[in-house]
Amino acid sequence: MEKQEWKRVLWKRQPFPDNYVGDSFLRVSKKCKKVSLSAALYGATAVTPEICSCLGLVVIFYGMSDSKMDSSVVLTLTAAVGIIGYLITRDHLAASIRNDAKVVCFYVVLIACVSPVIKSLTGSVATDSINACTTFLLLLRLVVHDYGTQVAIVNPTVSHNVGLFASVCLASRLDSDLDVFTLMTVAVALFALLPTFRRRCRSGLGRGWNLVLTVLVVGVTGSGIIQYTPHLLLVLVVALLLCNCLMPTLYICCQGHKQNIYGPWDEAQIEDR
C-alpha cells in the first residue's frame, strides 16, 4: 500500500479523514521576548526624570509661595537653560529660528495676558481641593506620558494638557502676577520642552551618559526638595524606589507568566506610511 503524504491544502482531495492531524499542525510562534533585569532597570530610568519634573514644579511653587525663591531669578535661569537647550537641539538653526521666535513670543504674550486671570481663577476653591487635584493630575501625567513605548495607554496630548492644568491649579494660589507668569513658564519648559530634549538625549547619548544625566536630575531635584520642601522628601524617595527598584523586579518576576501566541490567524497589521 503506497502511502500518500498529507498536505496542508483544502483544494486537494486527500485520503485522510477530516479530523486527521497532520504533522504541520500547530507550528505556531510563541513570541516570548525575555527582558533581562538590567534592561528592565535601565528602562525604568526613563520614568525617573519625569517624576523629578513633576516634583520640581511643586518645589518651585512652594519656594515662590513661601517667598524663599525670587521669581525673577527663576525666570532668568529657565530662560538661560531654555536657550542653551534650544541651541543644542536645533539642527538647522538659521532656517527655523524665525518661526521658533514667533512661537516663543506668542507663548510669552499669552501667558502674560492670562496670568492675572489665573491668579484669581480658583479663589473660591479650598486649598486642600487644589492640592488633591494637582496630585491627581500629576500622577495622571506620569501614567499617560510617552516614555517611548508603543502601548495603548500612552497619550502625549493628554499628558501635556494634564501637566499644564496641574500648573494652572498651583499657579492660582500664588500672590503676584509675576509669580504666576514664572510658574507657568517653568511648567511649559518642564512639561513641553524638557521631554523632547530628554528623548533626544536618550536616543543620541549612550547608556552611561544617560545614567549620569538621570542621577544629575535626581540630585538637583533632591537638593531642591531638601532646601525648600523637606516634607516632600519622603514622596521622592518612595516614588524612586517604587519606580526604579520594585516595579522592574516585579516585572521580571511576572514575565514568566506572560505567554502570548501568535499565528497565521492573527489580523495582519497595516504598516504606517
Binding site: 496542508r8 483544502l10 479530523n19 492531524v21 497532520g22 499542525f25 500547530l26 505556531v28 501566541i261 499565528g263 497565521p264 490567524w265
Partner: peptide, 18 residues
C-alpha cells in the same frame, strides 16, 4: 480551514481529533 482548526484547538482547548 486548517488554520481555523489550529485556532479553535488552541482557543477552546478541544482535543485535536474532535
Amino acid at each position: 480551514s486548517y488554520v481555523g482548526k489550529e485556532n479553535t484547538v488552541l482557543r477552546a482547548n478541544v482535543e485535536q481529533e474532535k
